[in-house]
Amino acid sequence: MNALRKGVQLLGLPVLLIALWWVATVNSDNFFWPPLSEIAGTFRETWFTGRFTADVLPSVGRLLAGYGLALVLGVGLGVAIGSLPVLRAVLEPVLEFFRAIPPPVLVPVLMLFAGIGTTMKILVIVSGCVWPILLNTVEGVRAVDEVLRDTARCYRLGRRARLLRLVLPGASPQICAGARQGLSVGIILMVISEMFAAGNGLGFTVVQFQRTFAVPQMWTGIILLGLIGVLLSLIFRVAEARLLSWRNE
């Protein structure tokens, strides 16, 4: 009974909405809003007959590469800057400025340097994702508890132990918050960099569909992008829950 109620709560509205969409478009001859049945019908043929390896995987691969690099860079630099108050004071306005630049404008800038290849796209993703991660790490390192710091000093924890046992775990809630922001920026940039200039990839393909007025196919692309966004945020949540399992919440 309880499980049934939970199931209804969880799936009720989504099922209802999809059903509504289905019914509302079932006899649709509106060019922009094809029947959902048609969209669903073309989904498999559109994406799983070659495009999955040709477009989807490269896109996601670039996203993960860029995001991973941004994590390493952001956390590494963030720990360094957060641990050195003078350096932090010097860099703060500069970092604030870089964070405030809407990341997509980096696409044309980085195209100058790196052309339109994979390198450019990864660079764009890195340079967009890195700021929220970096700035949150700096904040997190700064906010590590004073008494805990004293404790670590009293027991003469070495550099390595201080980093691994004190600073990184202490800053991890903030780092996760930054990493989450970074991930949504990363997905945006993955799509944008491909819409701007590319020969393959999800963003490229979806725009191609739009330009050739392959409307049902375009819809499948939008849905696929949505699913990827949802899937990645789910994976992120699982990872975060594991990483922060020590928290009493």
């Binding site: 799509v191 725009v207 739009q210 939008i222 992008l225 966004g229 949802v230």
Partner: peptide
């Protein structure tokens, strides 16, 4: 919520 808004760009343009 996690659906990237840029996914809607093609639809918007259309």
């Amino acid at each position: 919520r996690p659906i990237p808004s840029v996914a809607l760009i093609p639809l918007a343009v259309l």
